[in-house]
Nucleic acid binder design. Structure first.
Lengths: 138, 138
DNA sequence: AGCAATTAGTTTGACCATCAAAATAATAAA
DNA sequence: TTTATTATTTTGATGGTCAAACTAATTGCT
């Protein structure tokens, strides 16, 4: 048997469960998954241009234009002209957007706390360090 | 600062990267994400009823009906009557479906191998055991 | 400086995924 | 047997997505 078959299954299971969790948590906000994801990125990385945001979200700028339009109407996001390049637009969170981001982030923190409950300090350290290494390998 | 803030960020980063990876790997198959996901579940758990499959996929049976229709046309999936309950339908993979599942699974295994490259045996053990515990907490 | 090529963003048309609700058919319960 | 429940399908509406065509601004070249 493949030595990593087990770990592989655990990773897939973890991914699926995280996915379901996110889905249900997002549903409660009344916004869509794509909208909350956009808010998450803007909240974590701060204001940025459309092109950069689209890249981080893994969607085209065409899709993003429509998405941002809705978020602006919902007053979660603001558009500002870019200082150096008049073709560009800076997209950032409003106060309400920041609040939603903060709230969502706290849900994530709570989940992280909940699911790592059974781990001891050693396991937590190794898990954290392993994840750091793993993320660099992508 | 919140003690798990770091681990939380690493989990989110890992999730996002895995998500991108899956997206690009699926795109190469020529099938959609939803289709491959359905194949993955049927491949891992074997044939099952529509209702059960919909539950595992986290979608309604209405959505699934349309999905399965396409997969049958693509000859990846077969429908068979359920022996005990004539309301039910057993959905399972065809030979071509099995092949796609196997191929996709091997991509996952290869990824797992690649990203865990920098971990030593101890770290691998702890990671595996931690993930097992974490998955039980959802 | 002036023209061409590139770049940022928007718009549009076409799919796909999804859900809720209504419809159909079979089973279970009273 | 009648009624209620369950499994599945169908339908209509909405949202996310892309590719391609378009506009406007910038950069590069001569």
């Amino acid at each position: 048997m493949h030595p990593l078959k087990n770990l592989n299954s655990l990773i897939i299971e973890f991914y699926d469960k995280l996915s379901s969790w996110e889905q249900s948590v997002v549903k409660e906000t009344g916004y869509t998954l794509a909208q909350v994801h956009t808010i998450e990125v803007l909240g974590s990385f701060g204001p940025m241009r459309m092109k950069e945001l689209a890249e981080r979200l893994g969607i085209t700028t065409g899709t993003l234009t429509v998405q941002i339009e809705k978020l602006v109407k919902s007053e979660l996001v603001e558009r500002h002209p870019h200082d150096d390049d008049r073709r560009s637009i800076l997209v950032g969170l409003t106060v309400a957007g920041e609040a939603l981001h903060k709230q969502h982030n706290e849900m994530h923190l709570q989940l992280t706390q909940d699911i790592t409950q059974p781990l001891n300090q050693d396991e937590l350290s190794v898990l954290t360090e392993s994840l750091r290494k793993i993320n660099q390998e992508f």
